[in-house]
Nucleic acid binder design. Structure first.
Lengths: 341, 341
DNA sequence: CTGAAAGCGCTAACAT
DNA sequence: ATGTTAGCGCTTTCAG
């Protein structure tokens, strides 16, 4: 029988039964044993176990304004990248004795605001936000007036927030160096048409830089949404014919775009890498056996990003002085497979 | 400026400024306008907007023992099946004005207990549990003494819990009927060696039943863990040679096992479906273009399971009388592709 | 070493 | 139609 505090035992019941005051119980619960007699201590412990007493966190929180809750806002939790991020966040928070309040914003700016405000009403102690990108001012106000915020994965172009993300510049330069060495003289950048997502922007800008510095070509960029199957096929065809005679590769900015383009390639009956090669951001287990010998892809440190986000929040919660915001870039890994042979 | 309740405005401040009592403010906040003058009402509204007042949910919760929080325990949130489930749960809870406290149990029985107890301390109003399977007694105690529980996806063999899951019996019978009609006389059941997970057990039992009633063969069952690459290859080879001369198909009990076996098939250089066919539970986008023409797979209603779980909880929270526990089985869909041609 | 009492912000029974 | 008052369960001065 693990459970039996049916009667809603409170600190007062424990105090009465132990023959001490509520204060002493409170001290016991908070580990303030310095000036407590050993008798009291062991007596209290006995009674607590006997009554199966567990303190009401709501009451504690109300009194202390410390809820031991972290608010987590995720743009799309069904995306494995983000669910692993949440796993990292959740596991680490739990280790610190915190719980996470998770909400799915579905990339909607208004929902992001609404949920954040509502979580503040619950007195969360901090936020980890995978932001939609349109709430920079709002987030700054929250951070200024309430609790710390760490941005997960998606930066905003303002250095006032702690940000934890993958090192996308490095990753992009690395993969393009690799592609160039393999003889791919034409690299097309394929991404989702989502405005304002810092991650995409950084990958795209680094791609452009790499086009100039490494490949010495004009960038070839395509924006295609997840549901736009026809457009994806048109773009694939266009990219292939436009670069006739060159070794060419489709470079996708994220896992969803990879899926979109793989579908198109499959539908068009193109061979990888003979007709067109492919590679991109986000590495998933199934990529090992798609095509004749797998898809070249960049592993992102999703779990570790989650862990670091929590570490930053905890740092700020413990800090007594202001801490300067930093951007933490975690290393990625390039997995080379047959799709870029 | 959306935010500016820096000074922690309380109901008392609003009352003072509006020239009424705290009670009236409280009534206003709770929509008890029946006996309130229109002057008071509009005056209060003004002041609330002016001061940007938002009620402290912690205080409300302490008073009412209603936290507007639902606890969600997930065995492995990095698994897309579960992350979509969480999405369904989270979206639906938010629609009802609830937030979700999410914890990842990593299939650990002790963690499941620990997090549940801790969430009770936070006064969550209900639980949605994707249980490890070893906490039946514990969960029953929680439900008896505290708050409603709904089991998501994984049933336990006890009819005392509300359970929401996919209709695995139907799905299994359907796919085996389909396979039999296609001429597959040998079907092997491949699953993870996890004990006590109701979902696996049901799929396996139905498979056995189908072996008897439809295929009229002895069941051929293999248990292989996600990391056991060699074992997977051994089993694949064994299954193929054992059923030499028959049309045979590997039937995987979940997405992870599908990945494990695809890897093995790929490593062994087996052709699908010529050397061995494959199909299984869980349908993902990438399955459309693995192999020459996709993988046959069963779509599971993950999101809808999440939605229904919340509906059940809400039903219980609103109910005044005891509600009889039910098991809700949601329909699946068979996606036929080239791997079972 | 311990306790009395005040109060966190809100709600609700009981007045009026 | 509105206010007074007493808590919800805990923490924390302040006083012994």
């Amino acid at each position: 029988m693990v459970v039996k505090n049916k009667a809603n035992i409170t600190i007062a019941d424990v105090a009465k039964k132990a023959g001490v005051s509520k204060t002493t119980i409170s001290r016991y619960l908070n580990g303030k044993f310095e000036f407590m007699s050993d008798e009291s201590k062991s007596r209290i412990q006995e009674v607590i176990e006997e009554l199966n007493f567990r303190p009401n966190k709501l009451a504690r929180s109300l009194k202390s304004s410390k809820s031991r809750l972290i608010g987590v806002l995720i743009s799309d939790i069904s995306n494995p990248f983000f669910s692993i991020l949440v796993q990292g966040i959740s596991d680490t928070c739990n280790q610190h004795g915190y719980h996470v309040l998770v909400a799915n914003t579905n990339n909607a700016t208004a929902k992001e605001q609404e949920y954040i405000l509502s979580m503040i009403d619950q007195r969360v102690e901090g936020f980890i936000v995978n932001t939609t990108g349109f709430n920079t001012e709002f987030l700054r106000e929250i951070e200024d007036n309430y609790v710390p915020i760490v941005l997960a994965d998606r930066p905003v172009f303002s250095d006032t927030f702690d940000t934890v993300k993958s090192d996308d510049q490095q990753a992009t330069m690395d993969i393009i160096h690799y592609l160039a060495a393999k003889g791919f003289s034409r690299v097309g950048f394929f991404s989702e048409p989502i405005l304002n997502v810092g991650t995409r922007i950084i990958r795209q800008q680094t791609y452009r830089q790499a086009c100039k510095e490494i490949l010495r070509i004009e960038p070839q960029e395509y924006e295609v949404g997840v549901k736009e199957k026809e457009k994806a096929q048109r773009f694939a065809r266009e990219f292939v014919s436009r670069n006739e005679g060159y070794k060419k590769v489709i470079f996708t900015a994220n896992g969803l775009t990879m899926l979109t383009m793989l579908e198109a390639i499959h539908a068009l009956g193109l061979r990888m890498p003979e007709d067109v090669a492919i590679c991109g951001f986000e590495n998933w287990p199934w990529m090992e056996f798609v095509g004749s010998s797998g898809i070249t892809a960049i592993s992102l440190p999703s779990y570790e990003i989650g862990v670091e986000c929590v570490n930053r929040i905890m740092l700020r919660l413990e800090a007594t002085t202001k801490i300067k915001p930093v951007t933490i870039k975690l290393p990625t890994k390039l997995n080379i497979r047959g799709s870029t042979e």
